[in-house]
């Protein structure tokens, strides 16, 4: 068994505690994700997929339960330590690109490195240029997000999520608003980086086609994991 990149134990999430509207979203999730694993998180709308992803990404606090990233328990960490742990291990790709509109594509890809190092370095710039070329955006480095198409924006977001070679990439419907062809390209990119760099990926998707091309399918219904299937290697991969 490979070492775990994510380990969840009894994760519960309840919104609106102490208010008239209490929403119980997750009811005790146990989940283990291995280094280099490429998994899909599927389930109906409102089942808690984004919530779970945000918890794993240390963007939200669980109401109860244990969470560990790369073997390091996050349960007791304060805000600064969480930010640090997140920055060191996790890259995000969101459904909507969420690039920084004030910065160019290149600067967006460099941003995680700038945050880590304190200021831009020639090394970070070279890496970002290479990543942009990898996602097929050579020649678009100095465009602002508003000057790029939806698919191009999402590629920039993927390049950005990879910029620090994270051990875990969390992608929340990265192809949600793209046409099938572009969606396939984006998915293929994630797959490529997973193979090349060994980054584990957890991808939320509503697309059964894409889910079927992952190593594993984790199904969430009404806040509970109802199934976790290894998918046999097939011709599609």
């Amino acid at each position: 068994m490979r070492p775990a990149i994510v380990e969840l134990q009894g994760i519960r999430k309840i919104y609106g505690i102490g208010t008239p509207v209490v929403t119980k979203v997750l009811h005790g999730i146990d989940l283990r994700l291995e280094e280099g694993e490429f998994a899909a998180l599927i389930g109906p709308s409102g089942s808690g997929k984004s919530t779970l992803l945000n918890l794993i990404g240390l963007l939200e606090h669980a109401t109860a339960g244990e969470i560990a990233i790369a073997g390091e328990s996050a349960t007791e960490l304060d805000e600064v330590a969480l930010t640090e742990l997140r920055g060191r291990n996790i890259g995000f790709v969101f459904q909507f690109h969420y690039l920084l509109p004030a910065f160019t594509a290149l600067e967006n890809v460099m941003m995680p490195a700038i945050i880590r190092d304190g200021s831009p370095t020639p090394r970070a710039e070279a890496d970002a240029n290479e990543l942009l070329a990898k996602v097929g955006l050579a020649g678009h480095e100095y465009k602002k997000p508003s000057q790029l198409s939806g698919g191009q924006q999402q590629r920039v977001a993927i390049a950005r999520s990879l910029s620090l070679s994270p051990r875990l990439i969390l992608a929340d419907e990265p192809t949600g608003n793209l046409d099938t062809h572009t969606a396939d390209e984006i998915f293929a990119l994630l797959r490529e980086f997973n193979r090349e760099r060994g980054s584990a990926c957890l991808i939320v998707t509503h697309d059964p086609r894409l889910a079927g091309r992952c190593d594993r399918k984790i199904e969430l219904v009404d806040g509970d994991i109802v199934g976790s299937h290894e998918i046999a290697a097939d011709a599609d991969r």
């Binding site: 990404g57 963007l59 805000e79 600064v80 930010t83 640090e84 997140r86 920055g87 060191r88 995000f92 969420y98 690039l99 920084l100 509109p101 004030a102 941003m111 995680p112 945050i115 880590r116 950005r160």
Partner: peptide
């Protein structure tokens, strides 16, 4: 933007 920067590790 603030959310994105935070998610990318800015304290």
């Amino acid at each position: 933007e603030i959310g994105i920067l935070r998610a990318m590790g800015a304290s």
